[in-house]
Write a protein that binds this DNA or RNA. Structure first.
Length: 365
DNA sequence: GAGTTTGAAACT
DNA sequence: CAGTTTCAAACTC
């Protein structure tokens, strides 16, 4: 089966006990943690615990900046984090080794401020924790790929081209059904961002932006085809933004934007929103804490650039071309469906532009 | 603070 | 892969 069960055996009770003793943890191991039953094929054996004297020099929640999916679940208010990744969880059954645990998910170790027990997300079990993360990330990659493929039939080709794009974890948008994206159950709402076209929420009333399902399949294909997910796998294997939602499918590396002509998508904290360009503006207040002003500027420039190659802009030019017949002018907009074509069209001049367009029209027929 | 609701993760 | 269970946070009282 493709879906590899992720089950990671926690360190042995002895190790845990030793850890507790060495650490003087506030939550003493009263009962030896029971390893998860029936570990799957991907079960990871617990790493041998390292010498406590060494391990405990590590700062809790340091974790080499290893962060799995951004905010997998409702994670206790980010403000509650103590700056090193610890979210003060209160896990009881997950042993803080699953994505349920915000500290684990956030890339940090649990600290003494957590109310979790038993907890294996500690420096003492660093190797176990890291291995678990890798397994989970691996699954996330597959999931991410699956999601992309589901949404975009050609995504496989994209994936082949950008082989490392799978490093991006699933960022799928919310799936709220009952909360109408009006409560913190909703990741989007909690992040202060609107729901995206990739959310699957029902009766979305997210005040930061509704998912109104405006994006047609065709348009989604454009967006996904343009998906150029994080390539910097080496650097970011585990350093992932907090939100689990789909990373912005817009590639800023290419000026050949894939944005569909009739849809303006803005990048708001990795979300895609249909929005009239005229309404677009850098939403710095919506950007995550990690986003820099540079990002804002990039988005702004990106949108302006897109505007230059919009379909209306192309048609405007087209209307002024005496070289083309009415029939050709009626067909030409089809050529503009491809963003690359629009950019080429606008970039060319005079006769060459007309010749190029005629050739494109012929190719279409 | 206990119980309920919620949606994501994990599992089957 | 769809359905179910488990989990922990958010929410309600």
């Amino acid at each position: 089966m493709e879906a590899t069960p992720i089950s990671v055996k926690p360190p042995s009770p002895a190790a845990a006990a030793a850890a507790a003793a060495a650490e003087e943890a506030p939550a003493p191991v009263e009962e030896p943690p029971v390893p998860p039953p029936a570990p799957g094929p991907a079960t990871l054996e617990p790493m041998a615990s390292q010498p406590a004297a060494v391990v405990f020099e590590a700062e809790p929640c340091g974790m080499d900046q290893l962060a799995l999916t951004p905010n997998t679940k409702r994670q206790k208010v980010e403000e509650g984090a103590d700056g090193n990744g610890c979210k003060h969880c209160t896990c009881k059954k997950s042993r803080c080794l699953k994505l349920y645990c915000p500290c684990f998910t956030g890339g940090g170790y649990c600290s003494e401020k957590c109310g979790c027990h038993p907890c294996f997300n500690k420096a003492l079990y660093a190797e176990t924790v890291q291995t678990t993360r890798k397994v989970l990330l691996s699954r996330q990659k597959r999931l991410s790929l699956k999601i992309n493929r589901r949404s975009e039939p050609n995504a496989e080709a994209v994936e082949d081209t950008h082989h490392s794009s799978s490093s991006t974890p699933p960022r799928r948008g919310c799936n709220c059904k009952k909360s109408s994206c009006l409560k913190k159950y909703c990741d989007c709402y909690q992040d202060g961002t609107g729901c995206s076209l990739f959310c699957r929420c029902e009766d979305c009333k997210n005040p930061f932006g509704k998912n109104e399902g405006l994006l047609a399949e065709e348009s989604k294909r454009f967006l996904y085809t343009g998906a150029d997910l994080d390539h910097s796998e080496d650097e970011h294997d585990f350093v992932i933004e907090r939100s689990p939602r789909l990373q912005s499918p817009i590639s800023k590396e290419s000026s050949f934007q894939q944005t569909p002509p009739h849809i303006r998508a803005t990048n708001r904290d990795t979300h895609m929103f249909p929005q009239a360009l005229s309404q677009w503006q850098p939403r710095s207040w919506h950007f995550s804490k990690r986003q820099s002003n540079d990002r804002v500027i990039d988005d702004w420039q990106l949108a302006k650039q897109e505007d230059s190659y919009s379909i209306p802009r192309c048609i405007q030019i087209l209307n002024g071309m005496a070289e083309l017949s009415q029939t050709e002018k009626s067909v030409a907009p089809d050529v503009f469906l491809l963003p690359g074509n629009r950019e080429i069209f606008v970039s060319l001049n005079g006769d060459v532009r007309a010749l190029w367009l005629k050739r494109k029209i012929q190719q279409q027929n």
